[in-house]
Each structure stands twice: as structure tokens, then as C-alpha cells.
Design a binder for these strands. Structure first.
Length: 653
RNA sequence: GCCCCGAUAGCUCAGCUGGAUAGAGCAACGGACUUCUAAUCCGUAGGUCGCAGGUUCGAAUCCUGCUCGGGGUACCA
């Protein structure tokens, strides 16, 4: 039973007499902020008092007198200005806990009205290797799908792959001019990926070289501006100082840009082979774009190559997804919607939503300065067009009622416009939501990059996590009092679970909106709020079961009497009964960190219990059995909770 | 210029729709292993919630202004 939900319903009847149907009063029942105030607190007496012009404590007493919770709580207390403090009855808590034992869903009741929710996440480009930027979308999206599904919704995970863009032109160009045939036959994916990187690098080289003189000119100009500004500066003029600061910032940005460009230039010029290639392909960027354009206009050769390359590229992506344990119901890439785009634009035009402007076809939405462009002046479509076609498709084919886009928050403008346009287009009863997230930063507080300034490849990131985890697992095992107990392959298996779990958990535990600093030491720390802490708690429970020869099936099959005399037992039981509350909290605003917080408290309650309450050596057989039930429930809840986050557990560590 | 987001303990971050004395983890300090895995537990210390006003019985939370930082801003995604 979701105790909080039950309390809300009880309070509903109690405050009905005050003639309000307002849910917001019921939402003012919440977990107690401090254990001294009990388990839950109700705060609605104060605002109600204002409404009724009565003293708040009087209103609180009145609510309490109408409140029927005698079976659930000790007698409610009015405290402070008018808080109603509630403490769950010990016998009831024990009873609810023993009820969980037989409940496969651990108290989480499926929703009464399931909805069809499309979760759009990950969305890499096929030609490029996945990098760290795809991690958050993938991990958060996958967790949300799992949670929605567990709640009984029809969640459709859809990987909106970029398989039709400029990056494919680079591969096509590379294949035609720079191919190492032998390597392609041996390992097509690796070769295609090399070609992408090579073409990209060469075209960036030419761009950098072309831009550097202009950059230098602008830097010189900026320096001059600043110098003359400083000379004329009145120290008391605040506005002038502010402008000077801005100029300096601009100069810094220009210098950074210059450094990047120089690095790109030097990388080629310090390598004779690359320099020769660059000289041989001076117009590589333009020509790669031309290959993309040919593909889009249906050129048979390029279409044929695209068909050949795509499966190999998808395989490469799936290797990463398999490892992460992420699956998709649908993987309809941009190319899939290609045939629908023209009609989308026509439809928007015929409904009077889209109009011509500077040769482009645009939707002008109120409140936006920039238009939402659905067709470029040259006739090409954009991601805005594809996104609109995708919306239409999902609604018509899947009867989608809600769409969640798990995408970087920098794209919020795009989604705002997209959603407004979709509503105006006629899809106004569908819920669209940009589940935005912040950037992963390095130690320097700038977007996480390698030392040489490249984005970090996702596969190498996962490899490193597992390697680090392996060292930790081995050290831990070697240090066991009775000597190591894990064979080599077991250590490897656990390292995979701990390493990947660490990476995912670190990502999920942060509020998705904030940027966060990526730190190996923190995510794989052997102390503190990490996946390992939960996994370790799980392994300890299993250690007890193993050592005690406990038959879990037998334990769950019989009615259990749970005793909660020790404070640690009570605290643990209360946490166990709050799983549904936590799951509910996740979908309230699509925030997986609500679940990580819960699991950390649960694991904390368990380890305190573990420390103070002997299980196998409990004083009586009844107590032993009661504690075993608590252990079993803890293990199941941790495993299920982590599973909903896409994180695995191990029986031993 | 305009728009959006952020600023909470030394560090990294929570803080739900406004509620009681603002919380974790790390780092620091002090305790606890002859006892089910010490990858642990218990305790101490640490904050003018960027600044200034306002709304309210009550503000980290809502409003206004300011400072600093990040991002976006017409044919890339």
C-alpha cells in the first residue's frame, strides 16, 4: 500500500466539510521533514485557516477530529502553527510490510488509466561513433521507459537515429576517394568510422586554415578596441567598465577559437601523410555536402551505398546498446520519414500555418523572434520537418498520447517551437514534453573532453569504467578476512556490473536539469552515494541468505509476522513501504533522481539495520524469520529499483 | 540586443506545488571489526541559500531589479 496516497484519500474526506475540492490541499500531505515530527505531516491547515478566517491550530484540530486514520496512525498531533503530524502505527506498519512479502510488485499498483507514451531518446548519428554526449539521453530515457512500463503504461522507446544527414555524405566521399579496401572487407564498420573521422578532420583543416587569417584580424581589432577603450576609461563609469568586461570576454572567446583552429591545422601539418591527403582534397567539405545532396535527391549509386552501409553502422550502435542493456521498440531514423516531408510542408501551407520568407518556408509562432523553418530556400527539409512528420506518424500509427523527448537542454528553443507548431497543426490533445538535461562537464567545468580536446568516445568510456571497477572488485576480494572467494571470471562479470552501474548511477542521481562534473573517483568510489553502495547492500543480503541456507521461495510463500521493535527495523520497514511513493515521484516530472535518492535512503536504512540487528543470530526463531523477511524485501526492492534504472546487481561482490 | 537556465557547506550536489531548527555524499575530526561482507556503521564540525527590495502567518522555493556564470538566438542537428 502506498501509505501517502492512502493518507491523502483519508484527508480528502476529512476536509471535504470545508467545501473545497482542491487537490492542492491534499498534496500538502508529505513525508515528515524531520523524524521527530513522525512519518508524515499535513500542512493544509494554515492555508485553509486563511480561507476560513479562523486560527490555524483550530482548523488543524477540526481536521483531526474529522479524520479517520485510527487504523493507520497513532493519534495525530497538532504542532507549531498548525502542522498535523502523523506516525504510522507500529502494528499496521508490520502488517503492511508482511503484506509486501507476497506482492511481486512490491506495493506498486498499476495505474488505472494506462497511456501510450513515446519516449524519444539516445538518437545518435549512425556515421559517427557514439560519444559521451549520448550517455545522458540514453541512460535517462531508458530509465523512464522502464518506470513508465512498470507503472502499467504503454511506453514505446524510439531511437530517432540520424541516418540521413551530412555525416553520411562524409562517409560516401571517403568511400569513393579514401577507402582502404582491405580493411573495409575485414572490418567494414571500423573502416567506415575511420573514413568519417578522416573526412571530417580534413574538411575541418581546410575550414580552420581559411578562417585563421580572419580570426587573427578580429583578435587584433579587438585588442585595439580594448586598448583605446582602456585609455579613455572613466573609472567611475560603471557602464563603461561593464562594456570593457564584455569586450575582454569576447577577446578570450576569439583566442580560444583561434587555439582550436590552430590545433586542427597543426594536427594535419605535423603529419606528412595527412598533409598530402589534405592537399589532394582541397574542396572536400563542399564535395561531401554534394554527396549528401545526391543521396537526398535519389542518386542510385549513393542510395545503393547508403543501403549497404546502414546495417553495419547500426550493428556498431547495437554493440554499445547491448552492453548498456538498452533496447528500443522502434528505431525509425530520419530517413524513414523522408517520403512524408513534402506533404507535411504542403499541409502546413494549406492550413495557412506556413508561409514563404526569404525563399524559405516558415511557420511563424507567436512569441518567437525566429521563424520555425520547415523548408530551406534551396528546397531541402530540416530536422524541424522530420520532427513534425515523426509526430504525425506516432500519433496516427501508434495512437501516441504523450511524447517525451530526452534531449540536451540546449535544444529547448527548437522543442518549444516544435510543440507549439504541432498544437497549431491540430495535435492539441497530445502531451509533448522536452525532458531536457544538462551538460556533462570535465574537471575544468567545461564540456567533458579528452586532453586533446576531442569528445570522449562512449565505448572507451565504458571500457575504462569496467577496468577501474575490476581493480576495485579485486582489491575488495583480496582484502576479505577469510581470503579471496571470487574466481577470475566472476570478478570480470562483477566489474562489468559495478563499472556500468557506477556510470549510469552517477548520471541518474543528478537532477537532470543541472550540468554535472564527471568524476571517475566519485562514481566508482567505494564510499558514499554510488551504485556500489546499493549493490553492496544487495550482496550482503545474499551473503546472509547463503550463509543461513535460507530458502527465499519458502520465506515468501508463508505468512510472515514482522516485528519492528528496534528503531532500525522500523525505519527499514517504513522505507520498504515507500517504494510506490518513490516511483510515483519519478514520473511526476520525469526525474529518475527521485528514485536514486530513495534507493540511497533504503540502502542506508538497511546497512544501519544490518549493523545493529543480527539476523542469523537473532535471539529467537521468530525474530530471525522476521528479520529475514526484511532482508528479502530489501534485496528485492533494491534489485527492482536498480533494474528500473537499468542497473544490475550481483549476488556476491 | 533579445530569450532561456543557473548561483545552496571547503568540493560535488539534493531540496517535490511556499511550511517547523536548510539536507546528503566527499574531504576534516572523534569513536566502532574475537560477532551475518568495515565497499560499513555511529558521532562532531562546517551555510548571510549570489545581492537588494517585495508578496505572505511563513520564502532557498513566488514577484521585481541588480551582479556573476552558462546556453540559445533564419535556412546544422
Amino acid at each position: 500500500m502506498d501509505i501517502l496516497a492512502e493518507l491523502r484519500s483519508r484527508f480528502g474526506s476529512a476536509i471535504a466539510a470545508f467545501a473545497t475540492e482542491d487537490d492542492s490541499f491534499l498534496s500538502m500531505i508529505r513525508p515528515a521533514q524531520d523524524a521527530r515530527f513522525g512519518d508524515f505531516q499535513a500542512n493544509m491547515a494554515m492555508p485553509l485557516a486563511k480561507l476560513l478566517s479562523k486560527p490555524p491550530r483550530e482548523v488543524a484540530s477540526e481536521i483531526v477530529s474529522r479524520l479517520d486514520v485510527a487504523d493507520l496512525c497513532d493519534s495525530p498531533e497538532v504542532a507549531g502553527p498548525g502542522f498535523i503530524n502523523l506516525r504510522v502505527r507500529a502494528d499496521r506498519l508490520a502488517q503492511e510490510t508482511s503484506r509486501l512479502v507476497a506482492d511481486k510488485r512490491l506495493g506498486v499498483v498499476p495505474v488505472a488509466e494506462p497511456r501510450t507514451v513515446v519516449v524519444d531518446f539516445s538518437s545518435p548519428n549512425v556515421a559517427k561513433p557514439m560519444h559521451v554526449g549520448h550517455l545522458r539521453s540514453t541512460v535517462i530515457g531508458d530509465a523512464l521507459v522502464r518506470v513508465y512500463r512498470f507503472l502499467g503504461h504503454r511506453a514505446i522507446s524510439d531511437n530517432h537515429i540520424g541516418d540521413w544527414g551530412t555525416q553520411f555524405g562524409m562517409i560516401l566521399y571517403g568511400y569513393k576517394h579514401l577507402l582502404d579496401r582491405e580493411s573495409f572487407e575485414r572490418e567494414p564498420v571500423a573502416e567506415l568510422s575511420r573514413l568519417y573521422r578522416l573526412v571530417n578532420q580534413l574538411s575541418e583543416y581546410h575550414t580552420a586554415r581559411a578562417e585563421l587569417p580572419e580570426l587573427e584580424r578580429r583578435i587584433a581589432a579587438a585588442e585595439e578596441d580594448i586598448a583605446s577603450f582602456e585609455a579613455a576609461l572613466d573609472p567611475k563609469d560603471k557602464d563603461a567598465k561593464k562594456r570593457l568586461g564584455k569586450l575582454r570576454n569576447e577577446l578570450t572567446a576569439l583566442r580560444e577559437e583561434q587555439q582550436f583552429s590552430e590545433a586542427k591545422r597543426d594536427a594535419i601539418e605535423h603529419n606528412l601523410d595527412l598533409k598530402a591527403l589534405a592537399d589532394a582534397h582541397p574542396k572536400i567539405a563542399v564535395e561531401a555536402r554534394l554527396e549528401t545532396a545526391k543521396l537526398h535527391s535519389g542518386d542510385p549509386d549513393n542510395t545503393e551505398l547508403w543501403r549497404r552501409f546502414l546495417p553495419a553502422c547500426l550493428d556498431a550502435l547495437h554493440r554499445v546498446y547491448d552492453r548498456l542493456g538498452v533496447t528500443f521498440d522502434e528505431e525509425l531514423g530520419e530517413s524513414y520519414y523522408q517520403p512524408l516531408l513534402a506533404s507535411v510542408v504542403d499541409e502546413l501551407a494549406s492550413k495557412g500555418l506556413a508561409s514563404e520568407s526569404d525563399g524559405a518556408t516558415c511557420v511563424f509562432n507567436e512569441g518567437f523572434t525566429a521563424p520555425f523553418i520547415v523548408r530551406k530556400a534551396d528546397g531541402a527539409f530540416l530536422y524541424a520537418t522530420t520532427d513534425l512528420a515523426t509526430i504525425k506518424y506516432r500519433i496516427e500509427q501508434w495512437q501516441a498520447q504523450a511524447m517525451l523527448y530526452v534531449v540536451d537542454k540546449r535544444q529547448s528553443d527548437h522543442f518549444e517551437q516544435l510543440f507549439v507548431t504541432a498544437h497549431r497543426w491540430g495535435y492539441d490533445d497530445v502531451v509533448f514534453k522536452h525532458v531536457s538535461f544538462g551538460t556533462i562537464l570535465g574537471d575544468d567545468k567545461k564540456p567533458f573532453k579528452t586532453r586533446s580536446g576531442d569528445t570522449v568516445g562512449l565505448e572507451s568510456l565504458l571500457d575504462e569504467a569496467v577496468e577501474r571497477a575490476y581493480r576495485i572488485v579485486s582489491e575488495g576480494d583480496d582484502a576479505k578476512p577469510d581470503g579471496p572467494e571470487l574466481p577470475e571470471e566472476e570478478r570480470c562479470r562483477i566489474a562489468e556490473i559495478v563499472g556500468l552501474g557506477g556510470i549510469k548511477y552517477a548520471d541518474l542521481k543528478h537532477n537532470r536539469d543541472s550540468d554535472y562534473v564527471f568524476s571517475w573517483d566519485k562514481m566508482l568510489s567505494t564510499t558514499g552515494d554510488t551504485a556500489t553502495y546499493m549493490q553492496y547492500a544487495y550482496a550482503r543480503v545474499n551473503g546472509i541468505a547463503r550463509r543461513g541456507g535460507v530458502d527465499a521461495a519458502e520465506l515468501r510463500a508463508h505468512d510472515a509476522t514482522v516485528s519492528l521493535d528496534a528503531p532500525e527495523e522500523r525505519a527499514l520497514a517504513l522505507q520498504l513501504n515507500r517504494f510506490a511513493e518513490a516511483i510515483d515521484g519519478v514520473v511526476r516530472d520525469d526525474r529518475p533522481n527521485v528514485l536514486t535518492d530513495y534507493l540511497f535512503s533504503l540502502a542506508g536504512a538497511f546497512t544501519s539495520f544490518y549493523d545493529k540487528c543480527p539476523v542469523l543470530k537473532a535471539e529467537t526463531a521468530e525474530l530471525r524469520r522476521s528479520r529475514l523477511v526484511l532482508c528479502d524485501l530489501t534485496a528485492r526492492t533494491i534489485a527492482k529499483g536498480l533494474n528500473l534504472l537499468g542497473i544490475a546487481v550481483s549476488e556476491r561482490m
